[in-house]
Amino acid sequence: MSAAPILAAFRQSLGEAWAGGAGALLPLGFLGGAAVLVPLGIGSDGDTLKAVGPGIIWVALALASLVTLERIFQADAEDGTLDLWLQAGAPVSAIAAAKTLAHWLSAGLPLALFSPLLALMFQAEASLALLSHVALYALGSLAFFFWGGVGAALSATVRRGGLLISLIALPLFVPTAIFGAIAMSGGPGSSGAPLFLAASTLFACAVAPYAMAAALRLAAD
């Protein structure tokens, strides 16, 4: 086994993610749009916004990952690339993980990096804590992408697969959302929660690729 097919899959997905439209700008626009709707919906009261801010960003991250993921395996299944990757001589799980990672790098990570700006819009105080939150958002969104990738691989041959991905991935997003929210609450348990977040993300990285591989073999069958 060589790493060359895995690297090639990573490179292709990265190119794909940046080529279709404006690269990372598109998910960023989605996140910004979704987040801006909230103050319009619930009112501009500073304390309320401060309280719900981190939660809104988590929800927007989850939604953004679902929107991005809809096409990652579906396009491959439609244009025949999937057939080639399945025969590329590398473990399918590694290729699926490489593709997911590439999409996280071009959509998930930029969103996490962008989050302090959104947090400021939600009346958070400018402090170093916002930077540590970037790490938490990045870690959490990685789990979102891996579990979402399982949903995406399972619905790769399904028309209107996006709705199905959301339904499949939603329960799998729960631990990440909960650990992430607790970690940022500053309340009791917030010191241990980042470790749980990291653990659940590692769990996702360890398990999801195998499920994706099984689902992709099914999609090609």
């Binding site: 631990p175 909960i178 650990f179 607790i182 309340g187």
Partner: peptide
């Protein structure tokens, strides 16, 4: 089990 654990943690707070 992970979902159950996270929900328990969430509610215990």
């Amino acid at each position: 089990p992970l979902i159950k654990f996270s929900v328990d943690l969430f509610t215990s707070l």
